Amino acid sequence: MARTKNYFIIYKPFKVLSQFTSEDGNPGLGSIYSLPKDVYPVGRLDLDSEGLLILTNDKQLNGALLNPENEHRRTYWVEVEGVPDDSALDQLRSGVEINVKGNYHTLPCEAKIINAPDVAERQPPVNYQKHPVRSWVEIRLIEGKNRQVRKMTAKVGHPTLRLIRVAIEDLHLAPLQSGEITQISEKVLYKKLHLPI
C-alpha cells in the first residue's frame, strides 16, 4: 500500500532546533508539534533563525529542494546593525568571501533595504539598547551554505540581529505567526516550488 504523503509548513520559532528531538537544553520541533513519526524537516534553519520550514515524509521533495543544481530562490528578511550603504549592498549583490570549510565566494544575489516588516516581536527580543541603530534588508539567494546570510552581512560590516526566512520560491511564510503550522497539498506545494510532480 502506498504511503500517504504529508506536507506541512511551519514558522520555526527563534531558539528552536530544526529537528524533532531536543538537544543541549534547546527544544526541538517535537516539543511544539505532534506529527506522524515519518515526517521530518526539509533542510534546516539554525537555532537563532526563524521562519519558513517544510516538514514532510516525501523523500523525493527533500532531494529536489536541497540539490544545489536546482537553484531554488530563498528570501530572507534580515534585521542588521546599522544601515548598509550602497557600497555594502553592492558587495552583497556581487558576492563576498566567507568562511565555509575554507574560503568561499558567495554567488550573486538580490539585496535591498526594506521598511521594517509587520512581524511580531521575537521572544526574547533583540537588545535594542545595545543596538540602537538598525535596519532591515531583504536578501534573495539561490544557495544555502551554513549560516551564510549571517556571514555575508557581518562581512560587509552589518552583523545580523534577527533573521527570518519568508519564502522559498513562491511558497510564502505569511500568514503564519511564530510557532504556527499549516498543512498543504502536494500539488500546491510543488507548484509553488516550481517542481514537477
Rank of each mutant, 00 (worst) to 15 (best):
N115L: 11
N115S: 13
N115E: 12
A116S: 12
P117K: 09
D118Y: 03
D118P: 08
D118R: 15
V119E: 10
V119I: 15
V119S: 06
A120I: 10
A120N: 14
A120Y: 09
A120V: 08
E121C: 07
R122F: 09
R122H: 12
R122L: 10
R122D: 08
R122E: 07
P124Q: 07
P124L: 05
V126M: 06
V126A: 04
V126K: 00
V126I: 11
N127P: 06
N127L: 02
Y128D: 08
Y128E: 13
Y128A: 10
K130S: 05
K130I: 00
K130A: 14
H131C: 05
H131Q: 09
H131S: 09
P132C: 03
P132F: 03
P132M: 01
P132G: 02
P132T: 00
P132K: 03
V133R: 10
V133I: 07
V133S: 06
V133Y: 02
R134W: 09
R134K: 10
S135P: 08
S135M: 09
S135V: 03
S135C: 06
W136C: 03
W136M: 03
W136Y: 08
W136H: 02
V137M: 14
V137C: 15
E138W: 02
I139V: 11
I139L: 15
I139H: 14
I139W: 12
L141M: 12
L141F: 04
I142M: 15
I142V: 06
E143G: 00
E143W: 00
E143H: 00
E143I: 00
E143L: 00
G144I: 04
K145C: 08
K145L: 11
R147A: 07
R147E: 11
R147F: 07
R147W: 04
Q148R: 07
Q148L: 06
V149I: 15
R150P: 10
R150H: 08
R150K: 14
K151M: 13
K151N: 14
M152N: 11
M152W: 11
T153L: 11
T153P: 10
T153I: 02
A154V: 01
